[in-house]
Design a protein around this nucleic acid. Structure first.
Length: 444
RNA sequence: GCCGUCGUAGCUCAGCUGGUGGAGCACUCGGCUGUUAACCGAGCGGUCGCCGGUUCGAAUCCGGCCGACGGCGCCA
């Protein structure tokens, strides 16, 4: 509780500020000071109930006529929802209070009496996106942001424990990193540059110095995708590993993701409960994850009545069917070349396919990681780029990486918001971002 | 890009085959000594998305446009 400061009560002595969660968990008692925002305000005339929230939770406070001055009582009646206040009072266990504890207020100081808060009870998804700068205060957004922070913290923790260096690839790039996907162009002192869609190629360059690297960067896709799993700007966690083949690459992914799940369970039990995610299902996420070949996935889908043939890519329906009954994430390996990117390594056992994997989240949430061993033969890369009609000049430096001590290597990219969506059981990835960017929105 | 749904008070919505625009919440005022998104009474609140057409008369019928949302495709 260091650094929370103190507030003068009406007797002139200094009272320590405490966090709401420490009251609700029974850690503190007696006279306390709390600062936060008005979450609910009810009154029966002679008793006012003001629920105050801070970043840790919400607690009911009670004001009774005669226990505070008439001026303070009248002032409290004017507090709109989301007004900021400091209260001083006595912690009391009371079954009538939500959460089991309340504060009997002795003194109350408004810091700012807010204007009427625009968000009330019936709110459309549309409207909440318009007032996102205020909706981020909601319990739901608060819980999701806490889980997301844990995901990032746990990922960094795992990489640090496993000999990876965190690196900082550029966001402004001279060309698209992946063929086909649409890029945002920006004016770069009179030339055209692009916002990064993936750090992968830069990470590939860095393994020759650091061997195992990872990065967390925003990635941008200028596609007018209208689905619950797409946003224009998303946080991309990517890793690249020298001397690692496709199999070990998958081991790294499943260990990383399992660590993230275990930590989120450990750190965010309250938030997960609020979001409706049962902790058991996440606690059981442990290596190894089941893995099936693309061919087997096709056969499975055909047996389920899908009209899909070898060579077709999986759509949302197919991904859902493959994982809706699963409780573990599922690897699908060795996709046909036609539906994957040019930089993947050919599968020596079946040259029609690549040494690659997609990791699908369980319960139908779909792809959260795309991964592969990378092609090391410069001629094969040139040949594939030519076939795609790419401008080879843009890829010269990338081909160069295969000319000076090339080594086998693999890597992957994880969509952070997709992981958070799955962990928090969200309808849409945009709810895993405080200020989502979609084709139709970039405000606020 | 394709398919679908919807635009009425600050918010959520009702408004029938065309005839003087409504409710709940929020807000203001009043009442209530234990409320749980408190409750009760009153008040305030409108360019019915925009443009045009039909009609004595359009929120309502017709046409066009704009915007948002939902689903598919593309992908992390």
């Amino acid at each position: 509780m260091a650094g929370l400061g103190t507030a003068n009560d009406d007797h002139g002595s200094d009272i320590k500020f405490v966090k709401v969660i420490d009251i609700l968990s029974g850690k503190v008692s007696g006279r306390v000071a709390v600062r936060g925002w008005v979450y609910r305000h009810r009154s029966t005339g002679a008793v006012q109930f003001i629920v105050i929230r801070d970043s840790t939770g919400a607690i009911q406070t009670t004001l009774k006529k005669g226990e505070v001055t008439d001026e303070k009582f009248a002032l409290a009646e004017k507090l709109h929802i989301e007004s900021s206040v400091v209260v001083v009072g006595d912690v009391r266990e009371d079954k009538r209070a939500p959460g089991g504890y309340e504060i009997a207020v002795r003194d109350l100081k408004p810091i700012h009496i807010g204007e009427p808060f625009p968000i009330t009870k019936d709110m459309s998804e549309d409207y909440l996106l318009d007032v996102r700068h205020l909706w981020v205060r909601s319990r739901e957004q608060n819980a999701v942001m806490k889980v997301k922070a844990s995901v990032l913290k746990a990922a960094r923790e795992w990489f640090n424990m496993n000999d990876f260096y965190e690196v900082t690839p550029p966001i402004i790039t001279p060309s698209a990193c992946e063929g086909g996907a649409t890029v945002f162009a920006i004016d770069y002192f009179g030339n055209e540059a692009y916002l990064s869609q993936s750090a992968q190629m830069y990470l590939e360059a860095l393994i020759f110095s650091l061997e195992r690297v990872w990065s967390l960067t925003p990635s941008f896709r200028a596609e007018k995708s209208r689905t619950p799993r797409h946003i224009v700007e998303f946080w991309h966690l990517e890793a690249e590993e020298a001397w690692v083949g496709n199999g070990e690459n998958m081991k790294i992914q499943e260990e990383l993701l399992s660590h993230i799940c275990q930590r989120v369970v450990e750190w965010n039990e309250k938030e997960l409960a609020f979001l409706g995610r049962d902790v058991k299902s996440l606690r059981s996420i442990e290596p190894p994850f089941p893995r099936i070949k693309y061919d087997e996935a096709i056969e499975f889908l055909q047996s389920k009545g899908f009209s899909i043939e070898w060579g077709d890519d999986f759509g949302a329906r197919e991904e859902k069917a493959l994982t809706i009954e699963e409780s573990m994430p599922l690897f699908i390996i060795n996709y046909p070349k036609e539906i994957k990117a040019f930089y993947m390594k050919e599968n020596p056992e079946d040259p029609r396919t690549y040494l690659c994997s997609d990791l699908l989240a369980p319960e139908g949430y779909g792809e959260i990681i795309g991964a592969s061993e990378r092609e090391t033969d410069p001629n094969k890369l040139i040949e594939r780029l030519k076939r795609e009609g790419a401008n080879l000049e843009n890829y010269e430096w990338y081909i160069d990486l295969r000319r000076y001590g090339s080594v086998p290597h693999s890597g992957f990219g994880m969509g952070i918001e997709r992981v958070v969506r799955w962990l928090c059981k969200l309808q849409h990835v945009r709810d895993a971002v405080p200020f989502p960017r979609t084709p139709s929105r970039y405000y606020p």
